[in-house]
Design a protein around this nucleic acid. Structure first.
Lengths: 148, 148
DNA sequence: ATACATGCAAACATTTTGCTTTGGC
DNA sequence: GCCAAAGCAAAATGTTTGCATGTAT
């Protein structure tokens, strides 16, 4: 089994169509941004998007920020990881690493569940050459209070 | 089954002992910080630590930053989530949400694995009252290059 | 006494917003 | 022509460092 993702080519035109259906205008920055996303083999920061060779045009950071935010709102791209700007810390003593996080209010709950990926972790350690593997599992959603 | 974590009391003295064995001095800020961590029911930001009622003493943000960094280095606390300061984005089109991340160089690889938590996600959705659940699974470690 | 920890101030990186101008529809 | 998007500038947020002073060991 190969762990790395096998990339099938993504058609920019399809993405552009999605965007226009979502009410976005076909601008140079949008096309550039989609080109970068479509060819990227890993998640990118806003800076990395701008710096990518595929991007081609020069563009203000604020523009990329707003553009990607729009894409995120329209669920064409996803922002990964904790959405909070600040880092979170907890005692290592507690072995829990599974979280339930509200997208809206940012609340973080710790889940008390049996970890389902122990076996997977071993396999990844062997195949990837990474050492000292640990993992975290996060569930993102909208909490009861924020649904109202 | 109750998803929420059941907290067993954590002895501050034990933590202080760990710290002193790790070469840290027993300062007011250290004690305050451990008090907060020991009573917290979720991961905290540096600001939340300082603002917590348990903290008690007033203390410069830079001090807390360095203190928690020291605790992290000594593996007494853990920093959760992507360690990068910048947010990462990717196309939603690709359904992959499993990552292998190097703690040192920050590289992010996308893993092509069958997701082991579908079932769990349904259960959590039912029991938590959260809507629109999605999840991410991250493996953190040290990549081959960074091990040298 | 010494080295580690703190406070204060400043630099830094990134995100976010306000306002004007440009350009897609 | 209208409204969304871009550019530019500045504020906001959170992290990180430098240096002088304080304090645990």
């Amino acid at each position: 089994m190969n762990l790395k993702m096998s990339k099938h080519p993504i058609a920019i035109e399809d993405l552009l169509k999605q965007c226009s259906e979502a009410g976005l205008r076909r601008t140079a920055a949008l096309e550039a941004c989609l080109r970068v996303f479509a060819t990227a083999d890993q998640p990118l920061t806003l800076q990395q998007i701008a710096a990518n060779a595929e991007f081609g045009v020069s563009c203000d950071p604020a523009t990329i920020y707003r553009l990607v935010s729009r894409l995120e709102e329209r669920r064409i791209v996803r922002r990964i990881g904790f959405h909070s700007r600040a880092a979170h810390y907890c005692l290592r003593e507690s072995s829990h690493q599974d979280y339930l996080i509200c997208r809206d209010c940012g609340s973080v709950e710790v889940l008390d569940i049996a970890c389902p990926v122990e076996h997977l972790e071993k396999q990844i350690a062997e195949e990837s050459g990474f050492s000292d593997l640990e993992h975290e599992l996060e569930f993102f959603g909208r909490c009861g209070a924020c649904q109202k």
